[in-house]
Design a protein around this nucleic acid. Structure first.
Length: 612
RNA sequence: GCGCCGUUGGUCCAGUGGUAGGACAUUAGCUUCCCAAGCUAAUAGCCCGGGUUCGAUUCCCGGACGGCGCACCA
């Protein structure tokens, strides 16, 4: 990788090497030449990813009181027609031979000719149109005739059922699987807003150019929460995160020369209007705390607002969580200009408004609304029209229903029009005048119990793979112990693939081996993920665990078996290499407390006998 | 998708028109009372296809994969 190097290798390279060597992740199907954009998570990576997902679930599903579903990854074409994702499907790109710039061929044709819907034309026809009309590159003016037009699919297409079947697509985001089920999901939420539905699972995008390991892939895992809120009523429980500090990078700061970050609490961000949507600000606060818990370095985390041109078709406002993952800029440069560095998007917080549910209401068979009952039923005056069809029918024949419809529309618009003797409406561009009493207009007082509202959606959407990458990048350490270099991963116990390594101090002593094996068994029985290792020597085993981020190692030595008292063992901390001696019988409880984050190793060390 | 560069055991590298060598890692045995120690041995590799050649891991062409830049990332 280009850029300044640290210690002979840039850290992104070192990380990529560690990921492969230690089984975090590697390119899939290597035996067949590999396939770009697809990765296999090895034993360590799969465990880490699983733990990240579990931690996310704990926060965004359980703690927030939401419900999780699991939808299909393949859905019929109509879903994506409605969602707007299909609009991008037929995009056609043509690259200029002179300047190399790519342009939307269909847009050029629409601009330069009287063809209106070039997007729906077959590729060869668009190529011909480009040639026949002498369309030139908008940037450099070179002729584009003869250049091939490439179809550009970001969604993976497939066929549902045998033969030609029905066209289906692999979902490009997990969100749609939630939106399309809204009519049922609202029932499970007892038709009460606000409510949130989460989903963790794979999404697929046929990227033109996947890059940089698991940062940009064609299959990736999303963890998404769709929060359905009443646009008029609902406020987030802001007080729970009001004092959480956020590093914010709003649009105007990005566009300003020398723009900088703003540090604001969630409450300040809302009060000052830095973040417009209180719901978005609320989720930024929840996310900030979550990132802290799983081990994202707060100094290398920021929330950046999307610029207007950057926003997705569905978003009215969007903030991304971005992490700095190194590999391009050294620490000094970063200190001088925090906005330098290699930032990757790890989550997006969108205000999707009513976009998705409106679209599905339009294309689907359900209204995608929720009925909000009033506290008190309301008496409402409503103008009703019940045209006398026995008069309109003979008079207007097949146009009678259109006339009736026009009368209803007019009544809704302007009830007073029926005050006169006769009333005139326009049907198919023709004026029709009928006697007012034929329309049978009456004003009734009706009782309304509530109204149908279309919820708005606020969506925190997390990229799990990139979060995993961030944890590796932020946890990566190269240091020295007793003059020997050491590589370690400072992963939070909350997500570390292995919680505890258990070793006998030496392997040629049966008593130590037996005790170590029984310690490993008891810790596993207590629900901890444990690695047992007796190969090589103790130092090598510590190093192995350091490299995969195991926070604690238990070593069984002779000293712990001497005397009349119960057996004791030593516990070593990954980050400090400090040790403490504890009774073997208490291990499971003590270590579980550390792994669960209820206790620190330092506290454990104060309570026990420190080992020098 | 375009351009530049690259691809040798699991990892990192050396090397060659006559099919390869190291380091680390791994495994087995010995040793070892706290941080990658030592000894012995073992396992394991030239990305794929085509061409040139008596012979290609090496040279040429194409592809795949990877890195970077451009474009793309709803």
């Amino acid at each position: 990788m280009a850029g300044p190097e640290v210690g002979g290798v840039s850290d992104a390279d070192a990380l990529a090497e560690l990921a492969v060597r230690r089984g975090f992740y590697f390119g899939a199907a290597g035996a067949y030449g590999g396939v770009a954009g697809f990765y296999t998570f090895g034993p360590q990576g799969a465990a880490l990813k699983r733990n990240v997902e579990e931690a996310w679930r704990e926060t965004f599903t359980t703690r927030l009181g939401n419900e999780e579903i699991a939808g299909p990854t393949v859905m019929p074409e109509a879903v994506f027609e409605a969602s707007g994702h299909l609009d991008g499907f037929d995009d056609m790109l043509v690259a200029c031979a002179e300047c190399g710039e790519s342009h939307r061929a269909d847009h050029l044709v629409e601009d330069e000719t009287d063809v209106e819907d070039a997007e729906s034309l077959p590729v060869p026809e668009v190529e011909n149109l480009v040639a026949d009309h002498g369309i030139a590159c908008p940037d450099c003016g070179a002729a584009l005739a003869g250049r091939s037009v490439e179809e550009f699919n970001l969604m993976f297409e497939t066929t549902i059922g045998p033969g030609d079947g029905e066209s289906g697509y692999l979902r490009p985001e997990t969100a749609q699987a939630i939106f399309v089920e809204f009519p049922r999901l609202k029932e499970y939420a007892r038709t009460q807003l606000p409510f949130g539905v989460t989903q963790i699972g794979p999404a697929y995008r046929n990227e033109i150019s996947p890059r940089r390991g698991i940062v940009r892939t064609r299959e990736f895992t999303q963890a998404e929460l769709e929060q359905f809120v009443d646009p008029a009523d609902d406020d987030p429980p802001l007080e729970t995160v009001a004092d959480v500090e956020l590093c914010l990078y709003p649009g105007d700061e990005q566009e300003r020369e020398g723009g900088a970050y703003l540090t604001r609490t969630v409450r300040e961000a809302v009060e000052e209007g830095v973040v417009e949507s209180a719901w978005v600000a609320y989720f930024l606060g929840v996310a900030r705390e979550w990132y802290d818990r799983i081990g994202v370095d707060g100094d290398r985390l920021r929330f950046r607002q999307h610029l207007a041109g950057e926003r997705a078709h569905y978003a009215s406002d969007c903030w991304d969580a971005e992490s700095e993952v190194g590999g391009g800029v050294d620490a000094a440069t970063l200190a001088a200009d925090p906005t330098a560095g290699r930032w990757i998007e790890i989550a997006g917080f969108s205000d999707r408004g009513a976009y998705d549910l409106s679209k599905h209401a339009e294309y689907g068979d359900e209204p995608f609304t929720i009925f909000r009952q009033y506290g008190e039923p309301r008496e409402v005056e409503r103008t009703t029209v019940d045209p006398d069809m026995s008069v309109l029918g003979p008079e207007y024949g097949s146009r009678a229903t259109d006339v009736a419809e026009a009368l209803r529309a007019l009544a809704e618009r302007d009830p007073s029009a029926f005050d006169d003797e006769s009333v005139t409406v326009t049907v198919d561009g023709e004026s029709v005048t009928v006697a007012s009493d034929v329309a049978n207009v009456s004003v009734e007082t009706v009782t309304e119990a509530g109204e149908h509202v279309r919820p708005h959606v606020v969506e925190p959407s997390f990229g799990v793979d990139r979060t995993v990458y961030t944890l590796l990048a932020h946890g990566y350490r190269e240091d020295e112990v007793d003059g020997e270099p050491r590589t370690s991963l400072a992963l939070s116990p909350a997500v570390a693939p292995t919680a505890v390594g258990v070793f006998p101090l030496v392997s040629n002593d049966e008593a130590l081996v037996d005790l170590a094996e029984s310690v490993a068994r008891s810790l596993r029985a207590a629900g901890l993920s444990v690695t047992y290792d007796e190969s090589g020597n103790i130092g090598r085993r510590y190093r192995r665990q350091d490299e995969v981020g195991t926070p604690l190692c238990v070593t069984v030595d002779h000293e712990g078996r001497e005397g009349d008292g119960p057996a004791t063992v030593t516990v070593r901390d990954r980050d400090t290499t400090a040790q403490v001696r504890l009774p073997a019988a208490e291990l499971a409880d003590r270590l579980t407390a550390v792994v669960d984050g209820d206790r620190t190793f330092a506290a454990l060390r104060e309570a026990g006998a420190a080992v020098e």
